[in-house]
Amino acid sequence: MAVALGVGVTEISALGELRQDGPLTPSELSRRLGLTSPSVTSLLDRLESAGLVVRQRHPADRRSVLVRLTGGADAALAAFFELFSDDVAAAVESSDPDHVAELATMLGSIAEAMSARANDRDSIARELAERVARYRSGSRPPDGPD
C-alpha cells in the first residue's frame, strides 16, 4: 500500500488513523503514532504535498487544525482494503472448510488473549519490566518461529 501511494509506513499508519477515526488534530496523531510534534508536522507536510490530506481550521478551537483525508486518499484506501478483503475471501473459499474452522477458532483465541492482556496494564508493565531486566542481564530473547 505504501509503495503504491508513494509514501512510507509511518504515513500509511497516519492515513489509517485518519480513515478510522478522522479528522484528527496533529497532537492526537502525535499521541497515536508515538511521534514528536515536529515529526508529525513533517509527516503532514509530506502527506499534504502528496495530495492525501488537508489541514483545516478546527471549528471549535481557532488555535488548532484538523487533519482530514482528501477524497482521493479515502478512495485509494477503500480500494486497497477491498482488494485485501477479496484476497482473504478467495483464500478462505479455496480452503478446506475444516481448516477454515480451525483457523477461525485459533484466531478467536488469539484475539481473546491479546484483548485480555491489553486490558491489564499492570500486568503488562510488570511483565515487560521483568523481561527487559532479564534481557539486559545477558539472557537472550527467544528467536522467532523457524
Rank of each mutant, 00 (worst) to 15 (best):
M1L: 11
A2G: 08
V3G: 05
V3D: 05
L5R: 04
G8I: 00
A14K: 01
A14G: 04
A14H: 01
G16K: 07
L18V: 12
R19D: 01
D21W: 12
L24G: 06
P26K: 01
S27C: 02
L29A: 04
S30P: 00
R31N: 00
R32G: 09
G34A: 05
G34Q: 05
G34E: 04
T36Q: 09
P38C: 05
P38V: 08
V40S: 09
L44K: 13
D45Q: 09
R46C: 02
E48L: 04
E48F: 07
S49M: 04
D61R: 03
S64R: 13
S64Q: 13
T70E: 04
T70H: 00
G72T: 10
A73M: 05
D74T: 08
D74N: 07
D74K: 11
A75L: 08
L77Y: 06
L83M: 06
F84R: 12
S85M: 10
D86Q: 10
D86K: 10
A90C: 03
S95M: 06
S95D: 06
D96I: 07
V100R: 12
A104C: 11
T105W: 05
M106F: 12
A111D: 15
E112D: 15
E112Y: 11
A113Y: 10
M114E: 15
A118R: 15
D120P: 11
R121N: 15
A125G: 13
A129I: 07
R131V: 01
V132P: 03
A133G: 02
S137E: 14
S137Q: 14
S137T: 13
R140Q: 15
D143L: 15
D146H: 14
